Simulated scan of single mutants.
Amino acid sequence: MQRRRFLLGLVFWEAGCMGQQGLEWRILRGDNIEGKGWSETVAPFDRLPTHAQATVPPSVWSLSHHSAGMCFRFVTASPQIGVRWSVGGELAMPHMPASGVSGVDLYGRDSKGTLRFMSVGQPRQQVGNQIIVTGARGAPREFCVYFPLYNSTTRVEIGTAPGQPALPPPPRKHKPIVFYGTSITQGGCASRPGMAFTAIAARTLERAHINLGFSGSGKMELALADLLGELDASVFVLDCLRNMSEDLVRERMEPFVRRLREKRPTTPILCAGDAFLDNPAEPMRSKLTREAVAKLTRSGIPNLHYLPMRGAWDNDGEGTVDGVHPTDLGMSRQAAVFVKALRKLV
C-alpha cells in the first residue's frame, strides 16, 4: 500500500501498510492532543511551550517533556483498536510501575455514555509497544487514549480496521481545568495514566484538563504564574505544598496568586491544602495557605478559594505507596475531594 498523508478533521495522519492484525495504522501528528496547553513545543507531546525554557527552572523544563495528562479522543466503529507507542526514558521507578510511568490507557464510552476503562498498555521496551483491544461493533462510539505520566512520549499510532477511521469527537463545551503542582499532581504513583487524580476528576466532571505537575518542582516561581496565565482555563488548581517549605509558602504564595490574577482577572483559583496522614493538627503549610487566601480575598482578589485536604486519603494508611505518593486508592479518594470542590467552580 502506498504511503499517503491526509487530514481527518483537525488530525494529521500518515497512513501506511496494514499490520499483521489487519489494522491500518496512522501516526498521530496533529496538534489537537487534549491536555496540551500550547501548540509551539519542542516535541509533539511536551507540556510547556518552547519559550518557557528561558524562564522556568531546569528541573521543570526537563519534566515538561513528560506527557502527563495528555490524551487523544476519537470516534470509531472499528471492531478492533490498536495503540502503538514509544517513549524516551526509563520504563519504571522503584515505587511506580511501568504501566503508569510509561504505559497508555484506553477508555471507551459505554451504553450510558460514561467513559470506562478498557485496557492498559504495559510497556516492555522504549520503542514499539503495542496493544490491540476488541471494541463494540456497530455504531461509532468515543474512545480516549491516555499517554504516559512520567516519560516522554515520542511516537503514537492508532490502528483501526480498514474503512473505519478514527474521527474527531464532539468538541468540548467547556474550558479545561488546569492543575499545577507536584509529583502527586503529575501522577505519582498511579498504576496507569487514567488513575491519576487529575484524570479521574476530569472524567467525572466531563472536562478536559491540563496537567502541569512537576515532580519535586512545584514551587510557585513567578515564571509559572506567567505561563498559567497564558491558558484560558475554567479554573486553576494550585496544589504545590508538598514541594514547598513553610518559608517558601510565606514568600511565594501571595505573589504567585497576585500575578496569576493579573493575567486572568476572573478565572476561579483553587488553592489546595496539604494532604497528610495521621496528623490531628493542621499542617503549618496548610494554615499559611488558608491565611494567605483569606488575606488576599480581603485585599480584593476575587474568586479565590481554599480547599482543606485533611483526610483526603482517609486515615486507614492504605492510600499511599510510601506515605507521600498515593496509590490508586489514594488517587481515587483525593479525586473525590477535588470533584466536590470543583463542581461549585466550573
Rank of each mutant, 00 (worst) to 15 (best):
112 K>F: 11
95 H>T: 10
115 L>A: 05
90 E>G: 13
83 V>K: 08
120 V>C: 12
121 G>V: 05
121 G>Q: 07
94 P>S: 13
147 F>H: 02
137 R>L: 12
149 L>V: 09
111 S>H: 15
94 P>Y: 08
166 A>G: 04
67 S>W: 01
133 V>C: 09
121 G>Y: 05
117 F>H: 15
81 I>N: 10
89 G>I: 00
158 I>R: 10
124 R>A: 12
116 R>P: 03
112 K>P: 06
121 G>F: 07
134 T>C: 11
142 E>N: 14
78 S>H: 05
93 M>L: 15
94 P>H: 13
94 P>I: 09
79 P>A: 11
136 A>D: 09
158 I>D: 05
148 P>E: 03
126 Q>R: 08
85 W>M: 02
105 D>H: 14
102 S>V: 05
144 C>H: 07
154 T>D: 04
86 S>A: 13
139 A>L: 15
152 S>R: 00
166 A>H: 00
93 M>R: 13
148 P>L: 08
145 V>Q: 06
119 S>V: 14
83 V>R: 04
96 M>Q: 02
130 Q>E: 12
163 G>C: 06
128 G>K: 04
77 A>Q: 11
84 R>G: 03
123 P>F: 07
83 V>A: 09
158 I>C: 05
157 E>C: 09
76 T>L: 06
147 F>Q: 01
164 Q>L: 07
151 N>H: 02
146 Y>H: 13
156 V>H: 05
161 A>K: 01
144 C>K: 14
124 R>F: 11
106 L>A: 04
165 P>S: 12
62 S>V: 12
73 R>T: 08
128 G>M: 00
106 L>K: 03
119 S>P: 07
108 G>K: 14
159 G>I: 01
97 P>I: 04
103 G>E: 01
166 A>R: 01
121 G>H: 10
164 Q>P: 01
107 Y>A: 04
165 P>N: 07
144 C>A: 08
132 I>C: 08
127 V>A: 06
138 G>I: 10
93 M>P: 03
113 G>Y: 05
148 P>H: 06
84 R>P: 03
68 A>R: 05
94 P>G: 13
135 G>R: 01
99 S>Y: 03
61 W>C: 12
97 P>K: 07
108 G>V: 15
126 Q>G: 07
81 I>D: 02
66 H>F: 12
141 R>F: 10
61 W>F: 13
73 R>S: 08
114 T>A: 14
69 G>D: 03
69 G>P: 01
119 S>M: 14
76 T>M: 06
129 N>A: 01
127 V>D: 02
63 L>K: 13
61 W>K: 10
141 R>M: 10
140 P>R: 10
123 P>E: 08
125 Q>I: 09
140 P>I: 13
62 S>W: 14
99 S>F: 00
116 R>N: 13
115 L>G: 02
130 Q>L: 11
63 L>H: 10
